[in-house]
Every structure is written in structure tokens, then in C-alpha cells.
Write a protein that binds this DNA or RNA. Structure first.
Length: 425
RNA sequence: GGAGAAGUGGCUGAGUGGCCGAAAGCGCUUCUUUGCUAAAGAAGUGAACCUCAAAAGGGUUCCGCGGGUUCGAAUCCCGCCUUCUCCGCCA
């Protein structure tokens, strides 16, 4: 959520800032609800204060005395009224909160204005995307693909989008995870291994609930959700806590499987590894003070770029435009690798600064130099998502003999130069 | 899973219906004193929200969470959560 004071003091500024986001909000209605709520709260508190002072008078009267008994009768009416006003105040507050939560974060002024994904700006491109990839094939068309990533048996066991990685492919996934974690460690991120199911409070704090409920797998018995990203448990690590300024910035990384129902998003371009219900990802998370978050976003993006460069995969960086950045985002970069077989760009990372939006909702604060608690800033970025990186490796590194060359940076864990089967003809 | 016990401020811990946002101690901050340190003494020491142009000040809420009883709840009742002990089960 945004800062309510900003909304009250500069509603036009807020209105203008979110005008280009794709989320519609009636600012005037929110302001009216806020005014109504405050009026009700004041009334209720006055009534309660009256009741309390009358009550403490009563405490001095001898119990059971005629004055006492008379006073009790009098107090009944006051108490009933106070209660009534309190209920009204609570209702007004709930109405306001619901409306207030529908206001998205304000885009940073540096975010390009645009309506949708077509107006994202390509900030930079790395690697030779025009290079000849003479042997490239869509990864799902590689002859031995299904023997290494077994979708059919995944369907039998679980359902579509839950493949088995078999043998050397399983080891390649593990090598990628290790490589990503080691990259993160070298960049100063402390590793955590979080729970991969979370409760409703956590999912609400990071913004998955209430809007994206349909995207998560739910355990109704326990009221728990399978995480769609490690961002959820890792960010919640400090939920409702006050950090010390000298702890900041805090860098954390986490490897987890991620689960996404992807309801309604099946169609073209989702073959093979392009979109799965379960996938592995290393996530990078930062908590910063209010001053340095934009600078930290650039560092975060650079860290992820460095990892892609070591993998020698061509990629591009998109500056997401106002119409395409997410609800809680102030600024967002998407990183896409070039998959030469499909001749498509695949999103493998999204690096985002939520400024204080998510932290306010999650109750994450730090003490400023005067010792006053201030809302922290949170950031995160994928570093990286495995399946699409794997898809690009398979496609771009396909050799003349039909095998795939394993990137040098994975040799430490993989100890195998090629995977797959050479052609026999 | 069964049976018990407990959840109070940064920590320990008192408090079983009213003057308790909460004793006392520890810790922490500031000040005083003393070559330094230590020690001693004094004062202060949570958060959210509302009000106020701001500050000051005032008010409301918070004793695990949510309901209830009552004029009044940390204190009584109900539900839930968590922790501990014993038993059972189990990677």
C-alpha cells in the first residue's frame, strides 16, 4: 500500500502517477472513505474516553452503595452508545482499507510511459543474437529431449507441467542451481532455505492475496499455499519487525521450487520448458533504506546480468513501461534470454523495486538516525529461473553431432562436457 | 495423535474484576560525580492510530490471536494459534 499521508496531501500527484498503470482506482472514492472513517473513529474515541473517565469515577464509589447502583444504570447507556459508535467506526475503517488496498504503487519517474508490453523499452542487449546457430532446434524438438525431461510420465504421476528430469538432465538442473547460488553468494547474498508453503498472512503481505489467489496451489485443510516464488517466504522473514539501520542493506538469496497454477495462460508458446507448473528458481531479495533502493535495483540487475554473461547466453534487458509493471512495483527490469531454436526471447528474471509499498503492507521497518521507525524498501529479482535458462542452453549450445555443450561455468558441478546423444547416421 | 502446563514490555518476572500501559529487577540512553575504566546516584526508556499548520499537548488501542460476559477485563467464559513436559508415531 502507498503512504496514506501522500494520498491525503497530494491526491492529484497520486492520480497523475498511477494514470498510466493498468490498474484502475477511484481516488476520490478512497479519499471520501478516508474522511468518513476518520470522522467515525473520532466519534467512537470520544465516546470511549467519556466512558473511561466516568468509569474511573465509579471505581472510587463503595460497591453496592446507592450512588454506585445509580451510576451503573447511567453507565449502561453510555457503554451501549460507545459500543455502537465503535462498530460503526470499524465498518468505516474496513470499507476504507479495502478501497485503499486497490491503489497500486506509484511508478518511479524514470519508468517509461507506455500502455502495455509493446511499449517496454529495450535498455540493452548482450551477446550476438544474430550469430549463426546452425544446429539450433527448439529444445522440445531435440530427438533425445523426452528421454531426459519426461513429460509423459510427469502427466501420469501428477499432471501437465510437472516433468521428471532424468539422469544427466537432473544433474544439469542441480548444477544450475548450485551455480546460481554460488554467484549470489559471491555477490554478497546470504543463503536461506525457506519453507515452500506459506500461510495466508505471508501471501497477503507480499501481495499474492487477495488478487492472485487463483494462481497458487492451496492446501485447504491447513490454509497453506505452495509458494509461487521464494520472494514470499524470504520477504516475510522480517514481517512485522523493526530492523536496525546499520543492518541495512540486507541481501538474501534462496533456492526453492516454485508452483504456479498458470490458470488461463495455456496456449501457444508454452511447449516444453517454456511454462511449467513447478520449476526451480534462485531468488535474490534485498531490504534497504528509503534512500538507496533505486541504486540497489541497478546493482541487483547487474548481478543477474553477470550470471547470464557467464552462461554465455545472449540476453536483453527491458525497462518495463508504466502499463506493464506490476501492481506493487515502482520500477522493474525484465531480463530475457534468446532461445535460438525457437527464435524467441524467454523471460528468465524480473528485477523489481517495490519501494515501501510491499514493506508497508508487510510491516517491515527500520530505525532512522533519530531512532524513529521508518518503512523499509524491498527489492527482489530472479537469479535465475532454471527451466528457461535450460531451454536456451539446450537450443543455443546444440552441436553438429546432436549433443549439447555444457557451459564452462557449470563444469565445476557437472564435470561433463556434453549431454545428450550423438546422432548415429 | 493422546494427556497435562504455559503464553505479560528488549529480557527476567509480579499482577485473578476497577486508580494497571502494566510492580520490581536486568538491559539500554542521557546526565552527575570520580585520573581513565569500573562503581555509584538521578532522569528517561515500546508500537499503531486519531486530533493539531507544525511542535508541544491531548485522546484511543495493544498484556499470544479472535469472539463473549460486565458499567468496567491482563485478570472471568468460549474458540484458535504457539511453546514446553510426558506418552505414542515417524524421516
Amino acid at each position: 500500500m502507498i503512504d496514506i499521508k501522500l494520498l491525503r496531501e497530494q491526491p492529484d500527484f497520486v492520480r497523475a502517477a498511477i494514470a498510466h498503470k493498468k490498474f484502475k482506482t477511484d481516488i476520490d472514492a478512497v479519499l471520501e472513505l478516508d474522511a468518513a472513517r476518520r470522522a467515525k473513529i473520532t466519534q467512537a474515541e470520544q465516546a470511549r474516553a467519556e466512558q473511561k473517565s466516568a468509569n474511573s469515577e465509579m471505581a472510587t464509589l463503595p460497591k453496592g452503595s446507592p450512588e454506585f447502583i445509580a451510576k451503573v444504570q447511567e453507565m449502561k447507556a453510555i457503554a451501549a452508545q460507545a459500543k455502537e459508535l465503535e462498530v460503526a467506526a470499524k465498518e468505516a475503517d474496513e470499507a476504507f482499507q479495502a478501497a485503499f488496498l486497490s491503489i497500486p504503487n506509484l511508478p518511479d519517474p524514470t519508468v517509461p510511459v507506455g500502455k502495455g508490453e509493446d511499449e517496454n523499452v529495450i535498455a540493452s542487449t548482450w551477446g550476438d543474437t544474430d550469430a549463426d546457430f546452425p544446429y539450433a532446434l527448439p529444445h522440445f524438438d531435440i530427438p533425445w529431449f523426452e528421454s531426459r525431461i519426461d513429460f509423459a510420465r510427469g502427466v501420469k504421476t501428477t499432471g501437465a507441467g510437472f516433468p521428471f528430469y532424468v539422469g544427466e538432465m537432473s544433474r544439469l538442473v542441480r548444477a544450475l542451481v548450485n551455480f546460481f547460488l554460488e554467484e549470489a553468494r559471491q555477490n554478497g547474498y546470504e543463503e536461506v532455505l525457506p519453507p515452500i508453503v506459506v500461510n495466508a498472512e505471508s501471501a497477503t503481505a507480499t501481495g499474492q492475496l487477495p488478487d492472485k489467489e487463483g494462481q497458487m496451489y492451496v492446501d485447504d485443510n491447513e490454509g497453506l499455499y505452495l509458494i509461487p516464488t521464494a520472494e514470499v517466504p524470504v520477504t516475510n522473514f522480517y514481517r512485522d519487525e523493526i530492523l536496525e539501520a546499520d543492518q541495512m542493506p540486507i541481501y538474501r538469496c534462496a533456492y526453492t521450487p516454485c508452483f504456479r497454477r498458470e490458470a488461463g495462460s495455456w496456449g501457444a508458446h508454452v511447449r516444453g520448458l517454456n511454462r511449467l507448473h513447478q520449476f526451480d528458481k534462485v531468488e535474490l531479495v534485498k531490504w534497504t533504506d528509503a534512500e538507496s533502493s533505486m541504486e540497489e535495483l541497478e546493482k541487483l540487475r547487474e548481478n543477474v546480468e553477470g550470471t547470464l554473461q557467464k552462461l554465455e547466453l545472449p540476453y536483453r534487458v527491458l525497462r518495463m513501461c508504466t502499463g506493464d509493471i506490476g501492481f506493487p512495483h515502482a520500477k522493474q527490469y525484465d531480463l530475457e534470454v534468446f532461445a535460438a531454436g525457437q527464435k524467441r526471447w524467454l523471460e528468465v528474471s524480473s528485477c523489481s523495486n517495490f519501494t515501501d509499498f510491499q514493506a508497508r503492507r508487510a510491516g517491515i521497518r527500520y530505525r532512522d538516525p533519530e531512532g524513529k521507525p521508518v518503512t523499509a524498501h524491498t527489492l527482489n529479482g530472479s537469479g535465475l529461473a532454471v527451466p528457461r535458462v535450460l531451454a536456451a542452453i539446450l537450443e543455443n549450445n546444440l552441436q553438429a553431432d546432436g549433443r549439447v555443450k555444457v557451459p564452462d561455468c557449470l563444469q565445476y558441478w557437472m564435470r561433463q562436457e556434453f549431454i545428450g546423444e550423438a546422432k548415429v547416421d
